[in-house]
């Protein structure tokens, strides 16, 4: 059992200035997940008549991308390839102080406490992160052969869960890793080729519109990505962006 001190960011809404509030939580089982530890805290707060801590979470098995807390200065905590919901309390020491903050980035306004608005990521995908096919009238699946190596790389890129840790950790608030992962998934497959040049220009333009910053190649995004998405995707997108600007620039 662990006894811990939590420093949690509390903020009523987007207008409130927010502050850290300290909580002591005792008797936390080591097998509990980090979010279950917060559940235990919240259950106690409710019984004391206090406002429980608000945070995003859903599948609790590391795939939906809903959860995302800044834990002791790292998005999703310091362990590699781990989402917040997959972090277990056995990774912490008895008596430790844990600092918990929301994602902090201009493109992600805080809604309440540890919950932020990441809808900008949806708007990025809407700008072109898909193959524009309609339902029906498509060819037989095996009429499109894909080199296994490319298919595997595409799947690597497609593993992004859209949690936003890359944006939150980037000193520029850039969404390059997120956008390049979606771009690369499609660019590596024949199905995505037709719209590649258009897609890359539209997605980059939308990134600028939404107030995401530029990439300055610190690779913090890759280091903190819970799904191990590689910055080679960024390089691929940059190459294609340049090629697109020369070959088929979009009219403004």
């Amino acid at each position: 059992m662990l006894n811990l001190k939590l420093k949690i960011w509390r903020q009523k809404n987007n207008i409130d200035k927010g502050r850290f509030v300290e909580y002591n939580v005792d008797n936390i089982p080591e097998e509990a997940s980090f979010l279950e530890m917060l559940d235990i805290l919240n259950e106690r707060l409710v019984l004391q008549g206090e406002d429980p801590v608000t945070f995003d979470h859903d599948c609790r098995e590391g795939i939906c991308g809903a959860c995302g807390l800044y834990i002791n200065g790292h998005p999703h905590g310091k362990y590699k390839n781990t989402t917040t919901c997959q972090l277990h309390m056995r990774k912490f020491k008895n008596g430790e102080t844990i600092t918990i903050e929301p994602w902090r980035s201009e493109a992600f306004p805080i809604i309440k406490d540890l919950m932020v608005d990441r809808s900008a990521l949806d708007r990025l995908i809407q700008s072109g992160g898909y193959v524009s096919v309609r339902t029906g009238g498509v060819p037989d699946a095996n009429s499109i052969a894909v080199n296994k190596h490319d298919a595997d790389l595409s799947m690597d890129a497609a593993s992004c869960i859209g949690c936003g840790a890359c944006v939150a950790t980037c000193k520029n608030g850039s969404a390059m890793l997120f956008v390049s992962a979606k771009f690369s998934q499609l660019a590596l497959l024949p199905q995505g080729q037709v719209e590649t040049y258009e897609r890359v220009q539209k997605m980059v333009a939308r990134m600028d519109e939404l107030g995401f910053g530029n990439c300055s190649n610190t690779y913090a995004c890759m280091a903190e990505c819970p799904k191990g998405i590689s910055v080679t995707n960024i390089a691929r997108m940059n190459r294609q962006f340049l090629a697109a600007k020369i070959a088929e620039p979009l009219k403004k």
């Binding site: 898909y130 193959v131 096919v133 339902t135 029906g136 498509v138 060819p139 037989d140 699946a141 499109i144 894909v146 296994k148 298919a151 595409s154 799947m155 497609a158 998934q185 499609l186 497959l189 199905q191 995505g192």
Partner: peptide, 13 residues
């Protein structure tokens, strides 16, 4: 399966 492949779903190959 046809629809998903056309959308660029990266099925195992």
């Amino acid at each position: 399966i046809d629809q998903c492949v056309a959308q660029g779903v990266p099925f195992a190959r």
